[in-house]
Design a protein around this nucleic acid. Structure first.
Lengths: 192, 192
DNA sequence: GTCTATATCCAGATAGAC
DNA sequence: GTCTATCTGGATATAGAC
């Protein structure tokens, strides 16, 4: 990679980082290109050297967030016990979501009116979900309905936590219990 | 109530109804006072005769939505069996939410940046939740953690349904099964 | 690649005549 | 109670000089 390309990439990364900072301060939907340019230390039109539109800025943020999620899922060492492995990966997912509510807004909620990720960025989100589903399969959760339920339960606890008590654990502390309950349920059905 | 007051109230209701209509077309956050005035057939500044600010318009919508929810919960005939009653009221809740995604956005999600309901309106939301919790208590769900879980599970299924398949039942069709599973779990614990 | 300047459009809110 | 006119501020995006 040429030095020019490197510099450009570094600048782009810096802009995205500043955008996240603004988003954390005022909400993901309230990021304006004016404020972003000020934050970076350039004039607003100069941003168009790096992003075709505000939409493409959001897409870059969406992609980066999902790459962070994938990296996180890569980092965890999955226990060999399938049930423990499922707990581990779902915990990692929830922890990732809770540690940055703003990132959560962009990645998992619909807080940016009119924004839809490009296919390339969306593929990253699909891949992350796929990894979770794979671990579910290994734990014996093969029925699509059961997968849907477990995903919804995890998301429900996470969402309630984020909305009502960010930083606390009133809801997410029940995650393990809910996973056990559901896995037992799935297992009981398969043997009967 | 005087005729003048009646007329004024009728006009106010009409404005709120038009606001809901616009919200359903373009999203709850995209309601503008200009478009609203056009829809009603008056000029934009005239809206301030009925609402002090856009915030207070949202608050009126929030209050109306919650009053509709309370009316719905009043309407259903609760079975005498506590478990059946819980299923009935949670189904009513979910059905209410799914039949109008836009109303859901304002009542249960955070899709209006900067909007927080007044205490009076928020009290209605609390009352609705209280009614659900009361039925939970009667079904033996007395532990706050269990209440939180059931609420989160219901919301999780509802949210997944709304986001991924509005109008369908891929997620919400599991609601009864999840309620049974959870109630059995609560009961097993209490006898052991 | 960054700038100044500007186009274009939109928003919520207020003043004051009628 | 409704209007016209306007204030004030914001947004994204583009043109073209340097």
């Amino acid at each position: 990679m040429s030095t020019v390309t490197q510099r450009r990439q570094a600048r782009t990364d810096e802009i995205v980082a500043s955008a996240w900072q603004l988003a954390r301060q005022h909400g993901i939907a309230a990021v304006s290109l004016r404020a972003l340019a000020t934050e970076v230390g350039i004039r607003q039109p100069s941003l168009y050297e790096y992003f075709d539109s505000k939409h493409s800025l959001y897409d870059a943020m969406f992609g980066q967030g999902n790459r962070q999620l994938l990296a996180r899922l890569d980092d965890i060492e999955l226990p060999s016990d399938p049930r423990a492995a499922l707990k581990a990966i779902l915990h990692a997912f929830v922890e990732f979501a809770l540690e940055d509510p703003t990132r959560c807004e962009l990645l998992f909620e619909r807080h940016v009116p009119g924004f839809t990720p490009t296919d390339a960025s969306y593929a990253l989100a699909i891949e992350a979900l796929d990894r979770v589903v794979t671990v579910m399969h290994r734990a014996g959760v093969t029925d699509q309905g059961d997968v849907d339920c477990l995903v919804a339960i995890t998301a429900g606890l996470m969402q309630a936590q984020l909305t009502n008590d960010p930083g606390g654990d009133r809801w997410v502390r029940h995650l393990d219990r809910m996973i056990d309950l559901h896995l037992d349920h799935v297992h009981d059905r398969s043997v009967s």
